[in-house]
Simulated scan of single mutants.
Amino acid sequence: MRNTARWAATLGLTAAAVCGPLVGGAAAAPHAAPSSLYAPSALVLTTGHGDTAATATPERAVTLNCAPTASGTHPAAALACAELRGVDGDFGALKARDDVWCTKLYNPVVVTVEGVWQGKRVSYERTFGNSCVKDALNSSVFAF
C-alpha cells in the first residue's frame, strides 16, 4: 500500500512538473490561443465593367462572412455561403445554368473576390462576356 501511494505521489508531482509550465505558458500568452473554433471566412466581392480588375471601374462591392454564421452586406449571404461550402470555396466550380441563352454582345463584366475562406487566403478574378453570362451562373454568390 505504501509503494502504491509513493508511486501515485511521484507520478502526480512529475505530471505537475511537466504539464504545469505548458498550461501556465499558454495561459500567460492569450494571443496564442485561438479565439474561435471556426476558421475565418470573410470575403469582399466586387463587380464592374471592364476586361480585367485593373482596368475595370468598380460598380458594386459587398462583404460576405460565412463563419460561424452567414452575415455581411451580401443580399443573400446564407445562400451564397451554402453554395460556397458546396464547392469547397472553389469559385471556378460555379457553373452556368443550361437553360439560359445570352447574346454574344461583348460588354465585359469582371468580378473579384479577396479575403479568407476557411482560414486560407483567397484572390479570385473572372471576366464574363456580359452581364447576362455572369447572371447565368447557377449561384447567388455573384448576384449582388
Rank of each mutant, 00 (worst) to 15 (best):
A76C: 05
D90K: 15
A70G: 06
C81M: 11
A56L: 01
A54M: 03
D90V: 15
P58V: 02
D90C: 09
T73K: 04
L79P: 00
T55K: 12
A53V: 10
L64P: 05
L64K: 06
T57K: 09
N65M: 08
A54L: 06
A56E: 04
A80D: 11
E83N: 01
T63W: 01
R60A: 10
F91H: 15
T57C: 01
T63Q: 06
A82I: 07
D90H: 13
T69Q: 13
G92E: 14
T69N: 08
N65H: 09
T55D: 13
V62T: 04
A61M: 10
A67D: 12
A93L: 13
T57I: 06
G89W: 14
A93I: 11
P58E: 08
N65D: 09
T57D: 05
T57V: 04
A53T: 11
P58G: 01
A82P: 03
G89C: 11
P68H: 10
G86E: 09
N65K: 09
G89S: 15
F91S: 15
A61H: 07
P58C: 02
S71T: 05
E83S: 00
A56N: 02
A54P: 03
A80P: 12
P75K: 08
E59H: 06
G86W: 03
G72V: 06
T73Y: 06
T55R: 09
T73F: 05
K95D: 14
A54E: 13
L94E: 14
G72D: 07
L94H: 14
E59D: 11
R85H: 14
G86A: 15
A80S: 11
A82W: 04
A82E: 12
D88P: 14
A67S: 12
C66I: 06
V87Q: 13
E83M: 02
N65C: 02
D90L: 09
A67T: 14
A78W: 00
T55L: 08
E83H: 01
P58M: 01
G72F: 04
L79G: 03
D88I: 14
N65S: 10
A78M: 02
P75C: 12
H74G: 03
A76W: 05
C66P: 09
C81E: 09
D88G: 15
V62W: 00
T73S: 11
E83P: 02
P58F: 02
G92P: 15
G89L: 11
L79A: 13
P75T: 09
C66G: 08
A82T: 12
G92H: 10
F91I: 15
E83D: 02
R85G: 14
G89D: 12
R85L: 13
A80K: 05
P68I: 10
T63S: 11
H74K: 05
A54G: 03
K95I: 08
L84H: 03
A80Q: 08
A70Y: 03
P75N: 08
K95E: 15
R60N: 07
A78V: 03
A77F: 11
S71L: 00
G86H: 06
L64N: 05
T63L: 05
S71V: 00
L64Q: 05
D90I: 13
